[in-house]
Computed example of a mutant assay.
Amino acid sequence: MGSDIRDILLGLVSAAVTAVLARTTQLLRRHRIRVETARRYPIGGAYISTYTDVMDGETRTVRDIVHIDQAGSTFSGYSKNLTTGRRFNIEGRIVNAKYLTGSYQGDQREDESTGVFYLGLDLLRSGQIRGLWAGYGAESASIISGEWNWRKMAQINIEECTTSSPLLPSAATLLNDALGSGFVSIEHLRELCESDAGVVLFATDDQGRIEGISTAYVMAEAEKSDLEQKLAHAGVVRPNVVGTRMGMLKSSAVVPRRRGQGIGLRMVNQRLARLEEMGCAAAMVLAWDSGDRHSSFGVLEAAGFQRVAELRKFWREPEGEETFDCIKCQGPCECTAIVMRRSLYDFVPDESIADLDRRRQRVVRFTR
């Protein structure tokens, strides 16, 4: 009798151990598959996203930030419009090691927009994911569809300049190569670094090499008065420059190999954050269109800027005064300045961009 009970107990223990080992083996296998999938198809991170949508009866291209958290072959995250703040929650999975498929839904209860997407992984090695989306659009109250393209944001660091930074010569060279010989000097950048009203940001790689440079400052009263007169002359009613603590996003350039990777947007976001900290109620840009596909207008509009006016031959200096050689005009600059503005009262640094900079996770397009 005792022997029979002992045999039964040993059998139960053996079965339990076998079941635990089988379950552990199954979990380890799933974990190994998840790890291998994430290694072979690393889709986690932040992307600059463009998609076609219908707004007010017109088809438009919209720029968003997409942030993806990956768990093996499944993923979740969100897409956020930096201009409107509108956000969609995303979830999906990798299928047959070739595609991403999943769904999206409006983040707010009152936003009934919902749909699906199907994106290819054939360009993943170059940091791109492309495909299609389709769904119900609450704003148009209709079924719509279009392209949806993601481009991974560069893994770079953005740091504020110091007067002793060894990168100042490289930064000045980058701006002059991008905008024209003699546009900026090392001394000017150093003075901007020293000024309580100035902002100079460097984008660097993990070896500390410069990948981008951008500047901003708080406008002086004389400059605001001069700009307000020019805007009024251009037909702008109530420019509202004078009487407002106004920030100016000035020059920006990124090395060619980093174009289109979201660095420009990150540097705009960080400059706005610094100007807001410095007490500015609004920010302006005098944007110059280089004519290439990496124009900054899309970046600036994605960051909430709106066009105010065009000022022709804005950078032309009076005869006899020293100027720089514009790379577009091949001599003294005759270009038009596109004046853009955004309020900082409602400015909130985008959380996905802030996360990237905390984790150390770029258009040459220029603003003058």
Score class of each variant (00 low, 15 high):
residue 139 E to S: 14
residue 259 R to S: 06
residue 177 D to A: 06
residue 287 A to E: 11
residue 165 S to H: 03
residue 19 A to G: 08
residue 178 A to M: 01
residue 123 L to N: 11
residue 121 L to K: 03
residue 251 S to M: 08
residue 187 E to I: 03
residue 274 R to G: 04
residue 358 R to S: 14
residue 288 W to A: 12
residue 86 R to P: 02
residue 362 R to P: 00
residue 233 H to R: 14
residue 226 D to S: 13
residue 101 T to A: 06
residue 14 S to Y: 11
residue 231 L to H: 03
residue 142 S to C: 02
residue 133 W to I: 08
residue 277 E to P: 01
residue 260 G to E: 06
residue 156 I to N: 08
residue 78 Y to F: 13
residue 82 L to G: 05
residue 32 R to T: 10
residue 220 A to V: 08
residue 298 G to L: 10
residue 22 A to H: 05
residue 16 A to M: 12
residue 100 L to R: 09
residue 242 V to W: 00
residue 7 D to P: 00
residue 143 I to D: 01
residue 61 T to D: 08
residue 323 T to P: 00
residue 108 Q to A: 11
residue 247 G to M: 03
residue 211 E to Y: 06
residue 211 E to L: 12
residue 305 F to Q: 08
residue 210 I to N: 08
residue 224 K to A: 15
residue 96 N to W: 01
residue 346 D to A: 11
residue 255 V to D: 03
residue 363 V to S: 11
residue 231 L to Y: 00
residue 349 P to A: 12
residue 350 D to H: 12
residue 14 S to T: 09
residue 10 L to K: 13
residue 212 G to H: 06
residue 327 I to K: 12
residue 325 D to E: 15
residue 322 E to M: 09
residue 273 A to P: 00
residue 194 E to C: 09
residue 83 T to H: 12
residue 84 T to Y: 08
residue 173 T to C: 01
residue 134 A to R: 14
residue 136 Y to W: 11
residue 58 E to A: 10
residue 143 I to R: 07
residue 308 V to L: 14
residue 167 L to Q: 09
residue 82 L to P: 09
residue 231 L to I: 07
residue 97 A to G: 02
residue 27 L to E: 14
residue 184 V to G: 01
residue 273 A to C: 04
residue 3 S to L: 07
residue 82 L to C: 03
residue 79 S to C: 04
residue 312 R to N: 12
residue 136 Y to E: 08
residue 86 R to H: 09
residue 247 G to F: 00
residue 234 A to E: 12
residue 92 G to R: 07
residue 304 G to T: 10
residue 163 T to I: 02
residue 304 G to E: 02
residue 310 E to D: 14
residue 40 R to C: 01
residue 245 R to F: 00
residue 4 D to C: 03
residue 220 A to M: 04
residue 39 R to E: 15
residue 144 I to Y: 02
residue 136 Y to D: 04
residue 44 G to E: 15
residue 217 Y to L: 11
residue 34 R to N: 13
residue 359 R to N: 14
residue 223 E to G: 04
residue 125 R to I: 03
residue 353 I to Q: 04
residue 124 L to W: 00
residue 130 R to D: 05
residue 257 R to H: 15
residue 301 E to S: 07
residue 185 S to P: 01
residue 84 T to L: 09
residue 279 G to M: 07
residue 252 S to D: 02
residue 176 N to C: 14
residue 341 R to Y: 03
residue 348 V to R: 15
residue 289 D to Q: 04
residue 115 G to E: 04
residue 358 R to H: 13
residue 215 T to S: 12
residue 181 S to K: 11
residue 40 R to G: 07
residue 67 H to R: 13
residue 152 K to R: 15
residue 325 D to K: 08
residue 60 R to L: 09
residue 340 M to V: 10
residue 101 T to C: 06
residue 331 G to L: 06
residue 303 A to D: 03
residue 358 R to F: 05
residue 230 K to F: 02
residue 165 S to P: 01
residue 117 F to S: 03
residue 194 E to K: 13
residue 329 C to W: 04
residue 150 W to S: 00
residue 161 C to E: 03
residue 175 L to P: 05
residue 68 I to W: 02
residue 218 V to L: 14
residue 247 G to D: 06
residue 284 M to T: 08
residue 316 R to M: 13
residue 142 S to E: 06
residue 216 A to M: 13
residue 208 G to I: 02
residue 251 S to F: 05
residue 309 A to Q: 13
residue 67 H to A: 14
residue 93 R to Q: 15
residue 197 A to Q: 12
residue 78 Y to L: 05
residue 201 L to G: 05
residue 309 A to I: 09
residue 117 F to D: 09
residue 10 L to D: 04
